[in-house]
Amino acid sequence: MLPAAHRLRRSVDFERTVRRGTRAGRSTVVVHLLVDPDAGPEAGVGAVAGGAPSQVGLVVSKAVGNAVHRNQVKRRLRHLAAAHLPALPAGARMVIRALPASSGATYAELDHDLESCLDRAVARARRTT
């Protein structure tokens, strides 16, 4: 479960992250990552920068499947995101968008795809800042 402080809730934050953040995708998920430029490397990975912790939001549309499949994908991605939270740069916002292939993917496949996307998105974000 994601701690309350690490959940992305406002639609404005989702929109800003998707539009301005770096994107990395695989067959089951797409990760959008927006790193706060004010949080330098001295803030540390996963730390709270200027009172703002790293936040994660999920987007699972009806294209993924019926309510049972969507909820299963959300539960899996929420658990995986909590496990990968320490790998996020301080003050970062991440949106995980599930693709239709995620409904048939195993937990291990989702984990592999999310980790791969997160690594690439963090590397791209560090190059641009």
Rank of each mutant, 00 (worst) to 15 (best):
A24R: 01
A5Q: 07
P89H: 07
G50M: 11
V29I: 08
R26C: 07
A63D: 11
D38H: 08
R124I: 07
A105Q: 09
P53T: 15
T128A: 12
R97Y: 03
L99M: 15
R16P: 00
R75P: 01
R126L: 13
A49C: 14
R7Y: 04
T22E: 13
R76L: 10
R75N: 05
M1G: 10
A87R: 11
R16V: 07
E15G: 06
G46N: 08
V56M: 07
S11P: 01
R7L: 03
Q55E: 13
A125V: 12
V18N: 02
G104R: 14
P3I: 13
P53K: 12
A98N: 12
L77Y: 02
L118Q: 11
D119E: 14
R127C: 08
R124S: 14
A47F: 00
T17W: 02
K62V: 09
A39N: 03
S11M: 09
L8Q: 03
T106W: 02
A43E: 06
L114I: 10
R19D: 07
A90W: 01
G51R: 05
V48W: 02
P41R: 15
H6D: 05
A5P: 01
D38K: 09
R70V: 07
R7M: 03
V122R: 07
V45P: 01
P53G: 14
D113L: 04
A108S: 13
R10W: 04
P3G: 14
R10N: 10
A82K: 02
L99D: 14
E15W: 01
A83G: 09
E109P: 00
T28F: 09
L8V: 08
A43I: 04
G57F: 10
P53E: 15
Q55K: 13
S102G: 10
R127V: 11
H32K: 05
L85R: 09
A123I: 05
S116E: 14
E15L: 06
Q55I: 03
A43V: 08
R93A: 15
A87P: 01
A49S: 12
H84E: 15
T129D: 12
G46D: 07
R97N: 06
V45K: 01
D38G: 14
D36Y: 07
V18D: 04
A81E: 02
L34G: 04
P41Y: 10
